[in-house]
Simulated scan of single mutants.
Amino acid sequence: MPDRITSWHPSPSKPKFVPPPGAVDAHCHVFGPMAQFPFSAKAKYLPEDAGADKLFALRDHLGFSRNVIVQASCHGTDNSATLDAIARSNGRARGVAVVDPVITGDELARLHGGGIRGVRFNFLKRLVDSAPKDAFLDVAGRLPVGWHVVIYFEADILEEMRPFIDAIPVPVVIDHMGRPDVTQGPVGPDMRAFRSLLDSREDIWFKPTCPDRLDAIKEGGKGDPWDDFAAAVAPLVAEYPDRCIWGTDWPHPNMEDEIPDDGHIVDMIPRIAPTPELQQALLVDNPMRLYWSD
Results as ranks from 00 to 15, higher is better:
68 V>E: 00
66 R>H: 15
63 G>N: 03
53 D>G: 06
66 R>K: 15
64 F>N: 05
36 Q>H: 06
78 D>E: 07
90 N>D: 15
104 T>F: 09
99 V>G: 10
43 A>H: 04
66 R>Q: 13
52 A>W: 01
49 D>G: 03
119 V>C: 15
62 L>H: 04
45 Y>G: 01
78 D>H: 05
97 A>F: 10
107 E>D: 15
77 T>H: 10
105 G>M: 09
96 V>P: 12
103 I>F: 12
69 I>F: 04
101 P>S: 11
116 I>V: 15
52 A>D: 00
93 A>Y: 07
67 N>K: 01
40 S>F: 02
64 F>E: 03
110 R>M: 14
55 L>Q: 11
37 F>R: 00
109 A>W: 05
89 S>I: 06
34 M>A: 07
114 G>R: 03
94 R>F: 08
92 R>N: 14
115 G>P: 12
43 A>R: 14
79 N>G: 04
44 K>W: 03
83 L>H: 07
77 T>W: 07
88 R>T: 11
98 V>F: 05
38 P>Y: 01
80 S>Y: 08
102 V>P: 05
71 Q>D: 07
95 G>P: 13
95 G>C: 14
41 A>Y: 02
86 I>S: 02
85 A>F: 08
60 D>I: 08
92 R>I: 06
37 F>A: 00
54 K>T: 10
111 L>D: 13
34 M>Q: 06
61 H>N: 05
44 K>T: 15
95 G>K: 11
56 F>V: 01
102 V>F: 11
114 G>T: 06
44 K>E: 10
88 R>F: 10
54 K>N: 11
118 G>I: 11
86 I>N: 00
83 L>W: 05
68 V>D: 00
104 T>Q: 07
73 S>N: 13
99 V>F: 10
92 R>E: 11
62 L>S: 04
111 L>K: 14
76 G>V: 08
105 G>T: 14
69 I>S: 01
41 A>T: 10
77 T>Q: 06
39 F>D: 02
43 A>G: 07
34 M>C: 02
93 A>V: 12
78 D>I: 03
51 G>Y: 01
56 F>K: 04
112 H>V: 05
92 R>K: 15
93 A>Q: 08
88 R>M: 12
93 A>L: 12
66 R>C: 09
119 V>M: 08
72 A>M: 07
41 A>C: 01
44 K>G: 09
42 K>S: 05
105 G>V: 12
51 G>N: 03
116 I>S: 08
91 G>H: 09
70 V>I: 15
75 H>D: 12
35 A>Q: 06
112 H>K: 13
65 S>L: 03
49 D>Y: 01
